[in-house]
Write a protein that binds this DNA or RNA. Structure first.
Lengths: 340, 340
DNA sequence: GCCTCTCTCCAAAGCGCTTTGGCTGGTTAT
DNA sequence: ATAACCAGCCAAAGCGCTTTGGAGAGAGGC
């Protein structure tokens, strides 16, 4: 069923039908009701392409995932898009995901701009200095950064978590318990969030007069095996850390495995605090969570980012918007006083 | 830069430019070269909507994720789409992901059909009896099922893993080691894959003359906490299982945590075999994998499913295609002979 | 009674492509 | 030399919508 056909059946012009369905005032309420009823009855759905061509709006948001040959895809991503997808559905937007070889990422954004198949994008995993930001500005594609960047630091929309404070608090939680050798199991530190977390950790140590030790700071993909590997290595050392600070529940899981394998008791012999994105498949809530954690839902972040981006698209020249979320610090079973 | 503008600059008609760029033979090679060069120079990219409207092909594949209010999104999904996305990129297709409230799922498919914004869909997580299959046939949307269904069992494209044989082998691996009380930690058994795995497990037991025990069979979302919970409960029983068969590395991780927490040694006191999708963030390879597992890459499955679907789209009336993949059984550190 | 509004509706142009159906001018066959 | 053909190009229609610029019919004001 196409618009013209529907109009013919109703004895109306396509113009009127279009207006009736899109809520324009130039049509009587009586006619509108008739049109709407007929549209429903015939399950009429406008051709999305015709509509987009005519309006110039894609009603689609792009997410581009650069993917190296055998690099892993970030599992945090699935929860983020679950949230974003919810917001898109509510606002009538589509979500377009492109997996592109890392080398072609920039070219891909240029292609998006000139083919016009999205009217906004979400920038994932920004680096400390993020070249996609000036690029998207140049291309005049509306965007929002999930996270943010130091370079440039402003003049664009972003939604981030207070990673630095989160890790200051987490670290102090451990120092308050008497821990002084605290290992850091971090994400990739070219990424802004990981860099900030490290900064928070270092700040917190220096506030307590604890010297940093590069030998107990790790950085890499936030996977279970990495958490395990790093922890295992640390536990083998003569002067081993009494506590671990992890950047993801996945890492923390790996650490926990190594700790238990070594016959140590988590929360007694060794403490773990982790950052918790509330990944749906690694739920760390319940009356006594597995891990003491600083917590913020990445799914909610996805939802909110999508909402803000849609606002930006509908009002391209408004002032830049930024949201900084705080995390909550929840106490679980993985921490206890330092043994001496 | 639009087609008409490009044509003007070249002193050609839009017709010729279009044909030159799309490889039609009615244009001299010399002209084609000029056109291609100019297009590249001006970074010309055809408007995707205009193209789609004119050709009637969307060059887009849909994935729909039904999402209940606080239900978790399947983490296996991110690896699947990483693979699928690769195939789409190679073939010049876009990937459209819709998150829809569970109740609206069918309506959403109808909408896709009449708005024509995708020209094929991938059906995820088919049930034993899968209503989306007849629906999509009725709507005449090309599709492929990742997995398959018993109802209907044929007349459509699918790509599945031999779940049944996989679990027969896994179970026999354990019985060969002398285990007779083997718990099953399965996915949701309304889903076809989980049901088949259960069938394989039961077959294998009966072949060895072991009676099934509904009390040691669990079914639910494949998350770490579920694996932990189920295992913890089982370990508390008087006659506890000596081995566990898990449907996902996530479940196995939870089981492992419970086992270690109980002070037992995996692979010695208790054995675990798991199904391993090769999730990128839970790598179970290496010289000695954590878990003995039946293994098949869900990312590869995503890639191949996408390829098959594209073939189907380009040849809608060909014979139905089905691929049944076998898993490999790899031995890791989580299994050993049954203690007596 | 005439003029001006206002309310409804419509015809037609336009969005940026593809594709059908020519139209040329040069080659080849007769 | 003429007819027949072909390679190479173009004009125009069409994809299915939205939107601009009216037009016709009542209603209201004088």
């Amino acid at each position: 069923m196409r618009l013209k056909e529907l109009a013919d059946r109703l004895g109306l012009s396509p113009t009127t039908v279009s207006r009736a369905l899109n809520g324009y005032p130039e049509v009587s309420e009586e006619t509108r009701a008739r049109v709407v009823a007929a549209a429903r009855a015939h399950a009429y759905r406008p051709s999305s392409f015709a509509k987009r061509l005519a309006t110039g709006r894609a009603r689609t948001i792009g997410h581009v995932l650069p993917l190296a040959r055998h690099m892993s895809i970030d599992p945090h991503f699935s929860d983020f898009i679950a949230g974003a997808g919810e917001a898109y559905a509510a606002a009538g937007y589509d979500m377009l995901i492109s997996v592109v070889p890392q080398a072609g990422e920039f070219e891909h954004y240029r292609g998006m701009a000139s083919s016009g198949n999205v009217d906004g994008v979400i920038v994932h995993a920004p680096k400390i200095s993020e070249p996609r930001i000036p690029l998207l500005k140049e291309l005049e594609i509306p965007f929002i950064v999930h996270g943010r960047s130091d370079q440039p630091a402003e003049g664009y929309d972003w939604l981030d978590v207070n990673n630095r404070r989160s890790f200051v608090r987490a670290t102090h939680f451990l120092t308050d318990l008497g821990h002084r050798r605290i290992a850091l199991l971090n994400g990739l530190e070219v990424l802004h969030f990981a860099w900030r977390r490290r900064a928070g950790y270092l700040d917190a140590l220096s506030m307590r007069g604890i010297e940093e030790d590069a030998g107990i700071m790790f950085s890499g993909a936030m996977t279970e095996p990495n958490g395990y590997q790093w922890t295992k290595e640390l536990l083998g050392r003569a002067e081993r850390p009494t506590a671990f600070l992890a950047s993801s529940v996945l890492i923390a899981m790996g650490a926990l495995r190594a700790i238990q394998e070594a016959g140590l008791k988590p929360g007694v012999d060794i403490s773990i605090v982790t950052y918790d994105d509330r990944l749906s498949f690694l739920d760390n809530s319940g009356p006594v969570p597995i891990f003491t954690a600083t917590r913020s839902s990445i799914r909610d972040a996805g939802k909110r980012s999508a909402e803000l981006l849609i606002q930006r698209i509908e009002n391209p020249y408004g002032e830049a918007v930024a949201e900084l979320w705080e995390t909550e610090l929840v106490v679980g079973a993985s921490t206890g006083p330092a043994l001496r």
